[in-house]
């Protein structure tokens, strides 16, 4: 990007914009860390998506698991069993398979809550930025108040109150309660970013041209402003995906998330924690490592995306 900066303004815009895709690709390939992060992320996605097909065992199928296989150490140690590459937990479930199924749930919660948070945040941010005045003040004060509480506390509160008010079993509701509580605690960042960009875009002449034509404000917001503020939102979404996965793991670790019968990565870590001091380290270390690798990879991708897009955000 910087290499074409000095070329005359007219020419520069043309070249820059025309080659946005290939420039993005170029900066991607130039950074080895990013390529590695992308590979790790892809492996996790494929593993999670195709878990029923490629996982060596099905940890939820009671006919396949046997209590006789419980607490087998990883395959390369003395007591290891070649059937269980990363060992088994206390109920005889294969850790590798459990991680693949667990990543499925972690990623699903992550994606759904990020989408929910983005929808709420973008809508409120657009309205606050475009309408301005009193509406803006109200929305942004609510956002400020929410920011004073830690996200996990809010998620815990929502989670707790849903279970208290609604008469549902944990197995049925756990997934969606998690998504809603994480989504509601993460919208503020989107709202702030979108509001900021909207304030800039609102004063651009193409928005004024649309107003002179007489286009309805809602249509201006959706058709004109929204596509032009999506760049930063994409970056936040990537970084928030990692945050949401961690939050899910934390909540599951605290015991308010996904129940142990359908373990997510966080639940696996919590189960394994009980065995950490009796020497069965593999139950918690491998899921923990998997979680760290996934979050790190997604975060690195988000960082790269932010740097790659930033010079063009005007």
């Amino acid at each position: 990007m910087s290499e074409t900066r000095q070329i005359a303004p007219d020419e520069r815009r043309g070249i820059l914009a025309r080659s946005l895709d290939s420039d993005l690709l170029h900066s991607f390939l130039a950074s080895k860390v990013t390529v590695l992060a992308a590979i790790v992320t892809a492996v996790f996605f494929l593993g999670a998506l195709l878990a029923p097909l490629i996982a060596p065992h099905d940890p939820f199928d009671l006919r396949q698991i046997s209590i006789m296989d419980s607490l087998v150490p990883p395959a390369w140690s003395d007591m290891g069993d070649p059937r269980f590459l990363l060992g088994t937990d206390d109920q005889g479930r294969d850790i590798l398979s459990a991680i693949m199924y667990g990543a499925r749930i972690s990623l699903a919660v992550g994606f759904c809550s990020v989408i929910l948070a983005a929808i709420i945040g973008i809508t409120l941010g657009l309205v606050a930025g475009y309408v301005g005045g009193f509406t803006d003040t109200v929305i942004m004060r609510i956002a400020d108040v929410q920011l004073t509480f830690p996200a996990i506390l809010i998620a815990l509160l929502i989670n707790g109150s849903v279970h208290a008010v609604m008469d549902v079993t944990r197995e049925q509701s756990a997934f969606w309660v998690l998504v809603v509580s994480i989504g509601l605690s993460f919208w503020v960042q989107y709202a702030r970013t979108v509001r900021g960009s909207t304030l800039v875009e609102r004063n651009r002449e193409y928005v004024q041209a649309a107003r002179v034509i007489g286009v309805h404000p809602i249509r201006i917001m959706i058709r004109h402003v929204l596509p032009n503020v999506m760049g930063p939102v994409l970056v936040i979404a990537t970084i928030n995906l990692a945050l949401a996965i961690i939050t899910e793991a934390t909540l599951s670790f605290l015991g308010v998330g996904i129940p142990p019968t359908q373990p997510s990565l966080g639940t696996l870590i919590r189960i394994g924690q009980d065995f950490l001091f009796s020497g069965e380290w593999w139950i918690t270390i491998f899921p923990g490592f998997a979680l760290a690798a996934l979050v790190l990879a997604v975060n690195l991708l988000g960082d790269w995306l932010r740097d790659a897009l930033n010079p063009k955000l005007r």
């Binding site: 914009a17 002449e205 193409y206 041209a209 649309a210 034509i213 004109h224 596509p227 032009n228």
Partner: peptide
Amino acid sequence: QMIFQDPYSSLNPRM
């Protein structure tokens, strides 16, 4: 109708 000053900001870049 109105024609604006800055040809770079008066057209929506995403359309």
